[in-house]
Amino acid sequence: MLFRKIKEFFIEQLIFFSGIASIVFVLLIFFFLLKEGLGLFKTVGLWDFLSGQFWYPISDPPKFGILPLILGSLVVTLGAIVIAVPLGIAAAFYIAEVASPRVRDVLKSLIEILSAIPSVVLGFIGMMTLVPFIKWIFDLPTGLTALAGSLLLAFMALPTIISISEDSINAVPREYKEGAIALGATHWQTLYRVTIFGALPGIIAASMLGVGRVIGETMAVMMLTGNAAVIPQSLLEPVRTLTATIAAEMGETVKGSEHFYALFVIGIVLFVISFAINVTADVFLHKNRK
């Protein structure tokens, strides 16, 4: 009896600690970022850091302005979203509503495979194909541009967008579709007048998670976007993203230097952005379930 109670107690504690472990890890990561990053603000103001137009971390005196990096991330992400969201939603509708069961199965497993390709492999393929193609078609001095990054990231965001959108389209109650068809609506009218509204919260969440995937991606953008830390004027210029900056420069900084702190603050900025995106997506997913 006593033994059973002790066993019960330990199992409960174990489950409890597993449950809060993830929360603890998130908090620890956040505190670590803060601890390493906040040292920067002894010498550089927060506003100067966020709105400074020049990122010259190793010149003398160094300039730590991450505006070009933020805009670089933004441009690449926006480009990717403009491409991936419509394409992903259309693909999801095709798989959920139009494709025959066999085509559906094949497509779904292919999309799974797509999401399993390591980003460095995709980046490599992009470097060999996409970059020369963009250079050639727009007649540019280099094909390493925001556009190349956007295209490849769109490709990487597609599996997320398609599979979550498709789930939410499938979750639209059958009664909605039957109601529309019984009123004489065609398949297409049913889709764009009824089904899409039933699935909308899920589709928005899918897009947000796609954005989250894109903004945090590092390897592929570093390989494709040219990494010039200048404020981008168009999609056809080299840009540098927040993620690529950390990855490219972390190895060359001295621990405890201003530059080192600055990279950690970039990490905080990224953390805040993806956190906000995921929370928004979560809100919409919950709305969908209700």
Partner: peptide, 9 residues
């Protein structure tokens, strides 16, 4: 229908 099925509009 058996279950009232207004559209999500």
């Amino acid at each position: 229908f058996q279950r009232p099925n207004p559209f999500p509009l």
